[in-house]
């Protein structure tokens, strides 16, 4: 998987940098923003606060959405370097001033404009000077997800034990796409027919979305092609599910929060309905 990011530091300017800045570094992720002050111990390199508490960032590629908290955080990054616990590099979605200044005074490479939710602990990442990154051994597979709508409600289905991934979780109608499958929308209509018996009338195609598979065994990113489709109320009343699911429910979109869903479902629904 190749990801295009932006190099913030080290600087170019004088002579452009092209080569590898990180060669197969191990990734450690904090899903939430990081305050280095009070959040990372410079003497050990261990995260002391938040969802990633207890993990070490020393010698790793530290991936998190953005910095937050006190400006003293820049000095804490310097402390990490001084005690030999600096990360190999930092990758952010958005670089803000605390982490940027901290990276510069500590000589820690910094990259941004990357979807940090694509990474998991233990991933192996190489980063080039132009900001492009290779996430090793993670494959990318196309898939369609169809959100069906009838009477202002959307359909969610609980995945059975017989499917390949995300068993027991709630999802939309979905299926992966092989090269010979033709158009994504046609594939979506076929999936709806197979999984629910209904005739889908596609009303909207959402932007393609990369979602990290956090429940399958494979290191995989799903390149989701999302569709919103209407079904008639007669069809909805007659619907049936096949072996891929054990249950289904028609819910209001705002109820989705209370279900344990496949990764990215809420993002897909949000993109299609707003």
């Amino acid at each position: 998987m190749i990801i295009e990011g932006r190099r913030v530091y080290p600087m170019g300017g004088i002579k452009e940098r092209g080569g590898l800045i990180v060669d197969r570094g191990e990734v450690v992720v904090s899903p939430s923003p990081v305050s280095f002050l009070g959040g990372v111990d410079p003497q050990t390199g261990i995260i002391t606060d938040g969802e990633a508490k207890g993990k070490s960032i020393a010698g790793k590629v530290f991936v998190f959405p953005e910095g937050r908290g006190s400006t003293v955080g820049s000095y804490v990054m310097y402390g990490l370097k001084r005690y030999g616990n600096a990360p190999l590099a930092v990758v952010n979605r958005r670089s803000e001033i605390i982490v940027t200044v901290g990276a510069i005074i500590s000589g820690i490479p910094l990259f941004d404009r990357v979807d940090t939710s694509l990474f998991l602990d233990g991933d192996i990442l190489s980063i080039r000077g132009d900001g492009s990154m290779e996430l090793h051994d993670v494959d990318v597979k196309d898939a369609v997800t169809v959100i069906l709508r009838s009477r202002e409600k959307i359909l969610i289905l609980k995945r059975s034990d017989k499917v390949g991934s995300c068993r027991g979780r709630w999802a939309g109608v979905s299926g992966h796409v092989e090269d010979e499958d033709g158009s994504f929308s046609a594939r979506g209509i076929t999936e709806v027919k197979e999984e629910t018996g209904m005739q889908a009338n596609i009303v909207r195609e959402g932007p393609v979305l990369d979602i990290r598979d956090t429940c399958g065994e494979k290191k995989r990113i799903w390149r989701i092609h999302p569709f919103l489709a209407d079904v008639s109320s007669e069809d909805a009343d007659r619907m049936r599910i096949d072996w891929e699911h054990t249950e289904y429910r028609w819910i209001r979109p705002e109820e989705l929060d209370s279900y344990h869903t496949a990764p990215g479902l809420a993002d897909v629904v949000k993109l299609l309905l707003t």
Partner: peptide
């Protein structure tokens, strides 16, 4: 300024220029 950024006036000046230019770019 290019010379300062290249380190011709010492390490502290180089680092300082890096901070100013990087923040300026952002």
């Amino acid at each position: 300024e290019e010379r300062m950024l290249a380190g011709e006036e010492g390490e502290a000046v180089r680092k300082s220029m890096e901070i100013l230019v990087t923040l300026g770019d952002i």
